[in-house]
Design a binder for these strands. Sequence first.
DNA 1: TCGGATTTAATTGTATTCACTTTGCTGCGG
DNA 2: CCGCAGCAAAGTGAATACAATTAAATCCGA
Lengths: 249, 249
Amino acid sequence: MPDSSLSPLPEATGPGRVANRSLSVTDQIRDAILDGTVSAGERINEVRFSKTLEVSRTPVRAALQALAGEGLLDYAPNRGFTVREFPLSAIVDAYEIRASLEGVAARFAAERGLSAEERAIIEESLVAGDKLLARGEFAEGDLTIYRGINGDFHDTLLGAARNRMLAEMIRICHHVPMSSSRNIVAFEHRDVRRRHDDHHRIYDAIMAREPWRAEVLMREHVSGVKSSLVKSLIERGEQADIVHGSAAG
Amino acid sequence: MPDSSLSPLPEATGPGRVANRSLSVTDQIRDAILDGTVSAGERINEVRFSKTLEVSRTPVRAALQALAGEGLLDYAPNRGFTVREFPLSAIVDAYEIRASLEGVAARFAAERGLSAEERAIIEESLVAGDKLLARGEFAEGDLTIYRGINGDFHDTLLGAARNRMLAEMIRICHHVPMSSSRNIVAFEHRDVRRRHDDHHRIYDAIMAREPWRAEVLMREHVSGVKSSLVKSLIERGEQADIVHGSAAG
DNA sequence: TCGGATTTAATTGTATTCACTTTGCTGCGG
DNA sequence: CCGCAGCAAAGTGAATACAATTAAATCCGA
């Protein structure tokens, strides 16, 4: 099967122009993995990809190595790269790890303090969320909007932690297939309301300069997302017995 | 200056034979970074490395990309790779992150349980540590031995967590320059005694299947190493004011 | 017909070459 | 003396060619 939906470069990509082919190819292959165009466990053929993307093997190999560094691919010498499989247990674990890491990030942010810009962005995200949730139910597309609001909140806080390693690790957690924020789609208004309230409390703790409280709250917050996911998966009847530990948190 | 102490391959490396040049080169460059042969902030010249290591640029580039994935190098398009700098604050933060991650690992281990082998290795590490510490003071080389014991304990527990992403992230924390276990060298007998007692308690919590207790204990344990490091750095008069937050933990 | 060794194709690893970008220098003009 | 334009050198990015390894298929021999 000749990888469908994997098109060549759309030429010089807009104003934020593309730096080089390797990076562009990296993004394309990553997307292909995350949206399932190439399936898990599959072995990646370098020449096939280079033909599909209309580049040589060199940038393809660079991209594959980068993606292996991100944990999306496995590498075996002389046998190339394979798409890593993420069983449900690994996905749930990724939430747990992210909860812990974002907790640390919240603590750091509370210790280090926020810039004026950061405060502005977060406060705007809180207001926007309140407004969106005020009606008591979602209209079409509201969840997509909230996803942006949610992203602003978390990204800004992460930036305020002022630690790159932490940011990169959390980013990796986000890139675990299924674990990304797009899954919020499945959630109820009540769940989102509750999580947005979490945001308020976390921000309060940070502004009050209470690092450990901020950490605990953030941790519980992210862990709550995990619980919601597990719950919704169970309700959908998927095999959830793979999940270790106490799913209820 | 033509990179000293960076020698070409010593040919087919023993029984665990080298898979390919890229991996070998990766190890060599990583070592060169960690032991300071190439200094922090320095920009890496691909052709120079390829000449020194007597390989083409191709495996060198592969190695550099891999090391960038590990967070040891920075990459900028069309400007190549530079050795990433780790200010003291980043090193201290790395301990904090590791404390959090290893805490999660301990919790997972307590939830999932240990195999017979794992129990054996850990119990042996505990006994060996007790024996080594019984005399009340260290002989020459004892600290090196204890470093091995310490490694066995942590590595085995990490394996018992049965999560690869977690393992990789903790490994990255260990590879932060200065943050590696080799720095234990500076510590007193009393500190090591205390930390070995931590190991006992952590193992107890895990065997008692008390996940959260295991997590808290492990976290405090690793955090204690950080505190010792910070303390010893302050005593040595190094500029420790870079450190954010409460160093005492 | 099955097992195994050998050969052949496919795929990855490495080297080399060429193209493009960046950077530093040189010289001209102000 | 300073600044800027253009040019030259160095370095990275990508493509192609070649080598080595692995996987598959074929061809025996029992």
